[in-house]
Write a protein that binds this DNA or RNA. Sequence first.
RNA 1: GCCGAUGUAGCUCAGAGGUAGAGCACUUCCUUGGUAAGGAAGAGGUCACGGGUUCAAUUCCCGUCAUCGGCUCCA
Length: 644
Amino acid sequence: MINITLPDGSRKKIENGSTPMDIAKSISEGLARNVLCASVNGEIWDSNRPINFDAKIILHTWKDKEGKMVFWHSTSHIMAEALEELYPGIKFGIGPAIENGFYYDIDFGKYTISTEDLTEIEKKMKEIASKKVTFERINITKKDAISFFKRKKDEYKLELIEELEDGEITFYRQNKFTDLCKGPHITSTGKIKAIKLLNIAGAYWRGDENRKQLTRIYGISFQKQKDLTEHLEMLEEAKKRDHRKIGKEMELFTFSKKVGQGLPLWLPKGTLLREKLENFLKKAQTKAGYLPVVTPHIGNKDLYICSGHYEKYGVDSFQPIKTPNDDEEFFLKPMNCPHHCEIYKSKQYSYRDLPVRFAEFGTVYRYEQSGELHGLTRVRGFTQDDAHIFVRPDQLKEEFISVINLVLYVFNSLEFKDFKAQISLRDPNEKNKYIGSDENWDKAENAIIEAAEEIGLEFIKEYGEAAFYGPKLDFMVRDAIGREWQLGTIQVDYNLPERFELEYTGSDNQKHRPIMIHRAPFGSMERFVAVLIEHCGGKFPLWLTPDQIIILPISEKYHDYAKKVSKYLKNYDICGPIDTRAETTNRKIRDAEVSKIPYIIIVGEREEKEKTISVREHGGNELGIMSIKNLKDIITEEINKIIT
RNA sequence: GCCGAUGUAGCUCAGAGGUAGAGCACUUCCUUGGUAAGGAAGAGGUCACGGGUUCAAUUCCCGUCAUCGGCUCCA
């Protein structure tokens, strides 16, 4: 007999060699039906694999990430089997589960494959799944494993095996398909009831661009058809909310081949939206003691040699702009911090002056690889809502806390309710990758962690994700349809103050070095607007939307009255067009609804006579006849609720 | 940058070796309307760009550029 402990702390004695499935059955039939895999002393485990030692057991179902991952991983094996049947002789790379589904990297050799083929592969997969066979775990010696894949002439698997220790190698087999795999897998292929292959892409073998590019097929699977339908609907919804599509429809921004790839052009409506965001943050920053600064778009080469960026990013990233006569070299600025350091240096500071906070909506330019550009989320010229804060070491934690609070204020105001924080720390094994002393790194990392803990911010730690000059705290927000985006960032930097020899005079009358905090709550205006568009599907909150109202005169006779209404509202910064087309009212209403304007104002004979307006909210809710002042009050009150 | 796909009117897209079509939008006219598409007419395209094959290329081939899906990268 062995002892097992369940997550609720309860203990059970079971027969040596029992499986997680046996344990599930002893709890309930329902659980046994749903269990997909288990954690055994923290190791992920097949539900039909015997346990012969005392262990802590967690049973995983579809509800757990582990359950889904195993389910999807098993589906990728089924895809591989289907592919091998359809395209004999192909070779396999790796086929893991990912956040939403699975993929397999395949060397198709002589075959070419396109999206049209996916339907047939799916069909084959369903056929295989419906056979309800088990995934069989096979322990195999390294020698036998090698000879197996030598027979298959699969150099990719052979390469993987080479790196494994003899004795720890396992194969998994379902039907005729056998794969190198450490598992675990679900018990029966029959659990996979709904499969969808999503797309095909190229992927380098082992992520190395110097090695062969394999064909990657992405897919997802579910236990119920209904779940697949829902997932596909979510993808549809994401497509509808795509900021590139909405940006075009709502005339927010555009791109031009002539201007250049990755260089967004903000249209009037987009600019209005962006300026509202900027003003909102400026106001909050003023309250928090930030000082506005403005710096030019280029900087002398010496500036970047001093900052160390030139050395780090080198001639590849920095193409010089040369002055005609005296041979000076300038660079488009890829970040604002060196400029801000020089602003700091322009005067002397006492310890009483700190923290000093310089804020600038600074536009920067970075050469992103052409294949990486994507709408507004990845561009070559963008504006950071940047600020650099210079603090004394004893102020670091406190200032970090107030920056976190500012970021949280921004997210709350913009209805991003669901977010998490990631603290990026050094890779403890590769400390030489970073600049700055060990001691400073420790201090900075601890300050961030303590600050986050102090205000009760939930966070995860990621080792090896820090910038080369310091640790950071990034915010990931979850949007309305569940996707995660990285937005705001706060970074501690001991490096630049050192390189720029920044100083303040302490109470001891000695020179001391400040610490610098880089921070950007939005990250970049471009990226943030993109995420905001997708979060709200183009239906912006009232205080941000470029047009809050649209006025629809019933006929031409009421155009003058419409203009009066518009003028009145404009006095209170309530803006929007008048639809003067010779169209029916129904038509104008429809178009106004499609354009997502929050308030539709209809004026005709009655309204003109009574000096009123008829108001309808976006979505169809009629507010009825009211005075113009009444609507003004409704709108200003709603806006004031957010912007306090 | 790499692999693959795509590029036709302002937008969404159809089409074919013999120099182009729809819907929406736009303009004009008729209609003067009451809470999600009134009617008619018109205008609008070197078919991304540059080569090649051909009697003939927007269509086939090659290259370039851009976009999309990934990979790699990201101060």
